[in-house]
Amino acid sequence: MRLKLVPDDTNIDFFKHAKATFGASCVAMVLSLVVWLMLGLNFGIDFRGGTTIRTEGTAQVDVAAYRAAIEPLELGDVVISEVFDPSFGDDRNVAMVRIQAQEGQESVASDTVAAVEAALSEVDPSITFPSVESVGPKVSGELINTALLAVGAALAAMLFYIWLRFEWQFAVGAVGALVHDILLTIGIFSLFQIRFDVATIAALLTVLGYSINDTVVIFDRLRENLIKWKQRELRDVMNLSVNETLSRTVMTSGTTLLALIALLVLGGDVIRGFVFAITWGVIVGTYSSVFVAKNIVLFLGVKRDWSKPDKTDGNQFANIDS
C-alpha cells in the first residue's frame, strides 16, 4: 500500500502548451514588474530607516485612536497596522506602529520613542511594548546595497557553477528561471504590500537555492539522457527527463511545503512574512524548473555532440564508495 502522488511511467508532454505556460510566465513577470513600479514595495525599517514599535494590550486595537494620539507629535509618516494570529486570544491585541526616520537625525532619537509610548499608553493603559526597533538612515542605506549585492552575487555564482558543471545554455536557462522566481516573489510582495525587509531578502535567496536545486536535478537527468539518446529530438529527451524526475519533484516539493505550511500556520506572526516568501517561492520555483528553465534551454539549443568520451565525466564525485 503506497501513497503515489505521481503514477508510474508518466508521459506528459510538457511542451504541449509551451506557448501558454511560457507566455503566462512572461506575462506574470511583466505584471510583477508593473505592479512593483506602480505600487512600490512596503519596505520595512531595515531599508528605509525609522522605528517600529510592537504594542500589545488587552483592549481592542483602535487604529484611529492610536493615530490620533500620535498625530500631535508630528512625526511625519506613521503607519499603524493590527497584527492577527490564531494563537492570540481575545485579550491579546497586537499592533505594529512604524514611524519614519526623522529629518536630520542620523542616530535614533530615544525621546521620540518615549513620546510615542507615552501617547499610546494614554489610549490603552494596559499597553506594553514587547519590541522596539530603530534603524538609522545610514545603516538602512547600507543594508539596501548589501541586499542587492547578495542577490547579484547569488545569481552570478549560480550562473558560474551551472556553466562549470553543465553547458552555458543550461546556465542561462537556470538563471532565467531564477530571475522569474525573484520577480514573481517581489511582485506578490508588492501587490499585497507585505513588509519587505532584510529577512525577505534572506527568504528570496533561500528560494533561489531551492529553485536551482530543483532545476539542477532535471538538468542532471537531461544531461544523462542526452548521452543515452543521441538521436532523439531535444524536445523529446527533455520531456522524458522531466517525466522521469517528476515523481521526485512532486515528493520533495510536497515534503518541503508540508513543513513550510506547518510553520506558516503555527510559527507565529513574527516570521510569517519570511515563511510566506519561502513558501510562495517554493511553489513558483518548482513551476519554473519544469516550465521555464528548460524552455530557455530548448530555445537556445544544446550542442548534441557531447565530445566527452566518458559518461561518468562531470560525475567525478560518484565514486565515493569504490
Binding site: Y161, G209, I212, N213, D220, G314, N315
Partner: peptide, 17 residues
Amino acid sequence: LSAIVDANITTFIIAAI
C-alpha cells in the same frame, strides 16, 4: 549521486553568500 551533489552544492553556495 551527481544530482544530489550538484543540487546541494548550489544551495550551500547560497547559504555561504
